[in-house]
């Protein structure tokens, strides 16, 4: 019975799998070439924005894991960016400066938060799920706004960058950049393994037809909750990188606009592709930077871009979804 579910799609999905890894590998090579290029052009700014892109790529990829493969539109994922960022701030204020421990701390908090909020949100679906995840994200946002010991609304400046197993490789911008790239690559491989695993196939099966999967003997709730927790944990790694890049943390990391931007990145790159959202993060952030140079009212143009993309791209984003077999957002 189980072998039916696990082996049948493998044959047809194999080329897509290889394509995904190839596309990601190409992106990673391009990313790896950026710092030498930036130093040749003598413009270290590219490395700074590159680091931000890599961090958001991790977050967008993690969101794609549940949005693309599970059709779970989480509108509260910025909360996990915040948990990662504040893990750096809070742990370093207690003298724990090592990134490994900070990531561990961020993941523990994220896992707990995702477990509790996911257990409640996943009892619902559709519009309810979107609104509830948004509300829980906002709850985390307000928690850090009122956390006056760490600056509350104003944010909190970090006195030093994290160490990695006692070394200070993150102290150079290049070190942080390559660390972010390394983490992205490792987490991509992890996500790729998850999607291709038995667990991933069941999870995708639930997206296609929850009732049928339940009839076959899988509990949709457990699989979805596990994926939700994994996605939250991975997203928090992006927060740890962002805090080190900005040397500053604030509740602005977790505003609901940030959650919306993460969804935009996933959709721009291609839902349910893992490698796509990495490119989507780069495209969205570069578009923001570019529009920001053109006018201070860049959100107007960005918003216009979003509306037009949905209204006038052939069959909208749903068309892309159908291509990957995620046809139904609604009944």
């Amino acid at each position: 019975m189980m072998s039916d579910v696990t082996t049948a799609p493998t044959a047809t999905r194999a080329p897509a799998l290889a394509g995904r890894v190839k596309a990601a590998a190409l992106l990673f090579v391009l990313f790896a070439l950026l710092p030498p290029l930036a130093s040749a052009l003598n413009d270290p700014f590219y490395v700074l924005i590159g680091t931000r892109i890599l961090a958001y790529a991790i977050a967008a990829m993690a969101l794609d894991l549940i949005l693309g493969y599970g059709a779970l539109v989480s509108f509260g994922h910025a909360a996990y960016l915040g948990f990662g960022a504040y893990a750096v701030a809070i742990l370093s204020s207690y003298g724990i400066n090592d990134m490994v421990l900070q990531i561990l701390g961020a993941m523990v908090v994220s896992a707990l938060f995702a477990l509790v909020t996911g257990a409640i949100s996943l009892r619902t679906r559709g519009v309810y799920f979107i609104m509830i995840t948004l509300a829980f994200g906002q709850m985390a946002f307000f928690f850090f706004i009122s956390l006056s010991a760490y600056g509350g609304d104003d944010g909190y400046s970090l006195s030093q960058k994290s160490t990695v197993l006692g070394t200070d490789i993150l102290h150079s911008d290049y070190g942080l950049y390559y660390m972010a790239l390394g983490l992205l690559a490792a987490l991509f491989l992890l996500c790729n393994r998850i999607v291709g695993s038995r667990f991933g196939r069941v999870f995708t099966g639930i997206r296609e037809n929850a009732t049928r999967m339940e009839a076959v003997g899988y509990s949709p709730f457990r699989y979805q909750l596990t994926a939700f927790v994994i996605s939250g944990c991975i997203t928090s790694v992006a927060g740890v990188i962002l805090a080190n890049q900005a040397q500053f943390v604030s509740p602005a990391f977790m505003s609901w606009h940030r959650s919306g931007e993460l969804i935009v990145m996933v959709v721009l790159g291609g839902v349910g592709t893992l490698a796509g959202p990495i490119a989507g993060a780069a495209a969205a952030l570069l578009l923001e930077e570019w529009l920001g140079v053109l006018t201070e009212h860049w959100p107007l143009l960005f918003g216009l871009f979003l509306v037009l993309m949905v209204l006038f791209s052939p069959r909208g984003i749903t068309g892309v979804l159908e291509k990957y077999g995620i046809a139904r957002g609604k009944e």
Binding site: V127, I263, G303, F305, G329
Partner: peptide
């Protein structure tokens, strides 16, 4: 789909 609606109305908020 709800995803399209989220994106388009998120764009409207910005505009």
């Amino acid at each position: 789909s709800h995803l399209d609606q989220v994106l388009a109305t998120f764009g409207l908020v910005m505009i």
